[in-house]
Computed example of a mutant assay.
Amino acid sequence: MGKGIHLERTYPYPREQVWKALTNKEAIRKWFTEHDLTKNLDELQKGDSFTFISKPQGNWDGKMYCELMESNKPHKLAYTFGGDGFKQPSVVTWELIEEGEGTKLILDHKGFDGFKGFFLRFMLQRGWKGMLKSTVFEEEIEKNR
């Protein structure tokens, strides 16, 4: 697997609040994208599949096909993340670590190979950075008090 994305951000909220914003299907629709989830991410079982749905661009149909790999509430969430641009699915892992009265949210996104992988990593890194800094994501965290 090629080089991945590693991002960290600390929020001044308890881990359970951050977890809810990260896994709640309605919150995901607001801070990330449309999807076909009928349950919250932390209610899925290992191996369950779901799709994130964005605006199609060029030859990409706008769909990211995912499969839950791990859900350890409220510590860790991992799922595959693949679509037209991936030779094989990449892996998105979220870890939540208590830091004082706040929570450090760690995102690792791995599995980018070749030139196409380099381009995808560049594009996705920009998107993930924007999400972590998003006031919409933070508003969703605040709603879970």
Rank of each mutant, 00 (worst) to 15 (best):
L124N: 10
P12C: 06
K116F: 13
L105F: 04
D84W: 01
N40M: 05
D113W: 06
F50A: 13
E70I: 12
F122E: 02
I97F: 03
T51Y: 01
M64T: 03
M1G: 15
V18F: 03
G2H: 06
P89L: 01
E26P: 00
T23E: 12
E139K: 04
L132A: 15
L37E: 04
D42I: 14
L124Y: 10
F32C: 03
E95N: 14
E138Q: 02
Y79N: 01
Q57H: 06
L37G: 04
R15G: 15
S90I: 11
P14S: 04
F118S: 12
Y11C: 10
T33H: 10
D84K: 08
L105Q: 02
K129T: 12
G58Y: 09
E26R: 05
I141P: 09
D84R: 00
R9I: 06
H75M: 10
K110P: 08
I5H: 11
G117S: 13
S71I: 06
R9T: 08
Y11L: 05
Y65H: 02
F32Q: 00
V92R: 03
L77D: 11
F52W: 09
Y11Q: 07
A78W: 06
W60P: 09
E70C: 14
S134D: 15
R121H: 07
S54H: 04
E8V: 14
R126W: 00
K133D: 09
P12F: 08
G100R: 09
V92M: 15
Y65E: 12
H75S: 12
S54I: 00
K30N: 11
S49W: 00
G100M: 03
F119Q: 07
K110W: 07
E138P: 00
F115T: 10
W31M: 11
R29C: 01
G130S: 14
F32W: 07
P56K: 11
E43N: 08
M64E: 10
L132Y: 08
L132P: 01
T51D: 06
E101R: 14
S54C: 04
G2K: 13
I97M: 05
E138T: 02
K133P: 00
I28P: 00
H75V: 09
Q57S: 07
I53M: 15
P89E: 00
G83D: 06
I106V: 11
Y11R: 08
W19Q: 04
R15N: 01
K133V: 02
Q125K: 12
G114S: 05
G4F: 10
G117C: 02
E70F: 10
G111V: 00
G111R: 04
F115Y: 05
V91K: 05
W60Q: 03
K104E: 12
C66R: 07
K76S: 14
N72L: 08
A21F: 15
